[in-house]
């Protein structure tokens, strides 16, 4: 029944990262992301020097082997990466949509001009 603990921890971590990354998108999220990356790198170096650290952690939270622990950690890392990427793409999409809309509306001119006379647009046979 020891496996329950790791399941609990993993689920909580996944849910919290998901909620956090989806909810606030300010400077803080970015800072947290960068700090996380730093910690991750530091830990990577450490675990390269002392590979047994994974076994210790694994035993601590109730997983049998260190390799399993690495796998779980990767799953979490990958999930949060997917989520951040998704959020960032959405933001990017919103931005270029606004840009394209501004361009389109400026190019079309004010709608009141429509009342001035017959349409002045290019002929359909101009081809493009």
């Amino acid at each position: 029944m020891k496996i329950v603990l790791i399941q609990l921890v993993l689920i909580v971590v996944v849910v919290i990262t998901a909620v956090r990354l989806l909810r606030d998108r300010g400077a803080r999220t970015q800072a947290v992301r960068r700090l996380g990356l730093l910690l991750f790198a530091a830990f990577a170096v450490w675990s390269i020097l002392f590979p047994t650290i994974w076994n210790h952690i694994a035993r601590l939270v109730g997983v049998g082997r260190g390799t399993d622990m690495v796998l779980y950690a990767l799953v979490v890392a990958f999930l949060s990466f997917t989520l951040t990427t998704y959020v960032r793409f959405r933001e990017l999409e919103t931005r270029y949509t606004k840009l394209a809309r501004r361009l389109a509306l400026d190019e079309a001119g004010p709608p009141q001009l429509a009342q001035a006379g017959p349409p002045q647009q290019e002929s359909p046979h101009a081809g493009s």
């Binding site: 394209a100 361009l103 389109a104 190019e107 709608p111 429509a114 017959p118 349409p119 359909p124 493009s128």
Partner: peptide, 19 residues
């Protein structure tokens, strides 16, 4: 395709997204 030109020709105002 030629949608924009044909719509304008038929009497509609056309606003064109660049993409």
């Amino acid at each position: 395709d030629r949608s924009a030109a044909l719509a304008a020709h038929a009497g509609a105002r056309v606003v064109r997204h660049p993409l």
